[in-house]
Design a protein around this nucleic acid. Structure first.
Length: 263
DNA sequence: CTAGATGTTAAGGT
DNA sequence: CACCTTAACATCTA
């Protein structure tokens, strides 16, 4: 589930393995994953170069190419990830493979092919053109409050709106709403000062804890909701039956006992 | 076979 | 303009 914590984990993986390595080959097994660049141009643009530094904004990962401002951009859709492996990268779901001079490679994998790989001249302008809001971990309390006050829609759809705040998806929005005791269908501008403060705090705690635990729900504290995201299953806090509702076309899970609705 | 799945986006409606 | 729902994307899995 590539949301902010997952993408941050991929970023750190890339940092720990692939930085400063010479790219000797770029293999694209499905050019539908490439956006705004052809297979040939991607190969020409990457060959002989090195990845110098990485940056994440919301669910997007940027890896700057040396000697220039241009960057590789990765988005993981619903089923993408990054893997570092020895050899040439034989893998059923590897769509783009960067081969390094040391005999290892970086695989961009995507089961459902919903993500994208591209090259941009400047990460900042890409973020601007995409209209992405501030990264969820970079957003201050004041901006968060202003965002809430300006929206009448459900708090869950707002948290998942990448143009308002970048990085939160369906799964983690459920977690932070559960932890702050807020019903997902609550109106954003209906939350009081106390709820806003609680949600902001939960948002940061959840995202940082998830990164710390490598975005692996098996390692999350027992109080966490994500492993219990099952309709009819027991709430980890009170044991009530978890309910599922459709919000903005997505399935939101919540505990009707622990989460109150605000208008 | 069908429904639903972590994301984004376009299209159409209120 | 704000916001909602639906469908589409392409594929896998329960």
């Amino acid at each position: 589930m590539p949301e902010l914590p997952d993408v941050e984990v991929y970023r750190r993986c890339l940092d720990a393995t692939s930085l400063h390595q010479k790219i000797i080959s770029t293999t694209v097994t499905d050019s539908r994953m490439l956006k705004g660049i052809s297979r040939r141009d991607l190969q020409a643009r990457t060959k002989g170069r090195h990845l110098g530094s990485t940056r994440r904004h919301g669910k997007y990962l940027f890896a700057a190419l040396d000697r220039g401002r241009d960057s590789l951009v990765f988005h993981f859709g619903m089923t993408g990830n990054l893997e570092y492996a020895k050899g040439s990268g034989q893998d059923r779901y590897a769509r783009v493979i960067f081969g390094f001079a040391n005999g290892y490679c970086l695989l961009y994998r995507s089961k459902r092919r919903l993500g994208e790989v591209r090259v941009v001249d400047d990460a900042d302008s890409f973020i601007r053109v995409k209209g992405l809001g501030p990264d969820a971990l970079e957003m201050g309390r004041d901006a968060f409050d202003r965002m809430l006050a300006a929206r009448r829609g459900s708090i869950k759809s707002l948290l998942m709106n990448q143009k308002a705040i970048a990085g939160i998806g369906n799964v983690y929005s459920d977690e932070m709403l559960f932890q702050s005791g807020i019903h997902p269908a609550s109106r954003a501008n209906g939350l009081g000062e106390e709820q806003a403060a609680g949600l902001y705090r939960s948002m940061r705690l959840v995202l940082r804890e998830a990164v710390r635990k490598h975005a692996d729900p098996n390692l999350f504290p027992a109080s966490y909701f994500i492993p219990s995201r099952i309709e009819g299953g027991p709430c980890p806090r009170c044991g009530s039956k978890i309910r599922k509702i459709k919000i903005s076309g997505r399935s939101g899970y919540f505990c009707p006992q622990c989460q109150k609705k605000y208008y």
